[in-house]
Write a protein that binds this DNA or RNA. Sequence first.
DNA 1: GCCCAGGTGTTTC
DNA 2: GAAACACATGGG
Length: 216
Amino acid sequence: MTATDPSARTLRAVHRRLERAFGPRHWWPADTPLEVIVGTVLTQNTSWRGVELAISRLRARRLLALAPLLRLTPGRLAPLIRPAGCPNVKARRLANVLRWVRARGGIAGLRRRPTAELRAGLLSVNGVGPETADSILLYALDRPVFVVDAYTRRVLGRHGLATGRESYAELQARFHAALPRRARLYNELHARFVALAKRHCRARPLCAGCPLAGLS
DNA sequence: GCCCAGGTGTTTC
DNA sequence: GAAACACATGGG
């Protein structure tokens, strides 16, 4: 996939159109990098509504920090995050990733390490797959890594820009090849995919007024 | 009651 | 690799 590939031109057109349609989104909905990390695990295969409730419970108990969360046994943590679904699984996964963070000197320690090392390390944590890893890299650590999620796939699929059979790595590679490697750009673009998916790409034929209508 | 939602690990072929 | 399944809650 090169910058002259037709699909690259299309993706740049997508970027321009969404930028014009939605402007800056200021995403991820969290106050701190640690909160982003917690949110990325909790939101796995779940809608954001329950995640918000789970996070607000943690915040109300002043648990939304590395040390307090790590002091909790999975048995204590699970009931607190229940609204996010799969509480037992996610309590374990949260502990896994938070231990990994602590072992590297916390958020400040992560900031000093190269992206490739962080990504490989995150992927080695049980419970962290490519989307969770990349969401942490992009939204918690400002690394230029594009996040491919269900929203991204839905929008691309609706507009005939993906078949649905592409691997995560393949779709991500297309974005990386088509657009400059900038965290800010990937952050905004992904956030706009989400906005578009929520507003326009739910109905089966494309709804009227979709900013991506008539592409390709 | 059924299906889906900002995935991932395990098992199986 | 890829498909089937478990994990579990809340909303439409």
